[in-house]
Amino acid sequence: MNDVSLGFIFLDALLINNFVLAVFLGICPFIGVSAKFSTAWRMGVSVIFVITVSSVLAYGANALLVALNAQYLRIITFIVIIASTVQLVEMFIKKSSPALFRALGIYLPLITTNCAVLGVALFQTAREYSFAQSVVYAIGSSGGFCLALVLMAAIRERLELSDVPPTAQGTALVLMLAGLLSLAFMGFAGMGGGS
């Protein structure tokens, strides 16, 4: 069905159709966890990890559902997979690297409600990506989420030093900044689309 190159899928998911700034997925953690740079990049890395693992599992589960002709169970299957992936990743990190677990610990459970995770699973299915395409897409889009989160955290740390009118503090300001970032990312559109 589609023969889109892996490089283009990656670029597209990372920059052109950035998950946060163009597709509007994962806005809640983007607003909630972007106050400090150090927590933002940890959250970003955990999300890359979880999205990649759950994308692989979702690809397998979808193939199984198609084989059984039971596509109507797709949404419920994906959400169960994501919830269990988060649990598994949490247990795995706890066993294999306690230091990393201490750093990421509290962010992992939050990821279940991150719509970007379900978004990747749904989009890769809707676009009929192959296995390799799905994995590249998962890494690209979660990388894009991480990028947007880290950029926003860096901006917000700077803002701490400036004098913001009280009415504009909080979420309203973050959304305005996100709008500017999104405007900047629109410049990537058309990249790789042929001259």
Partner: peptide, 9 residues
């Protein structure tokens, strides 16, 4: 038929 455009398929 389908093809990648500027923004999406």
């Amino acid at each position: 038929a389908a093809e990648r455009g500027y923004a999406d398929l």
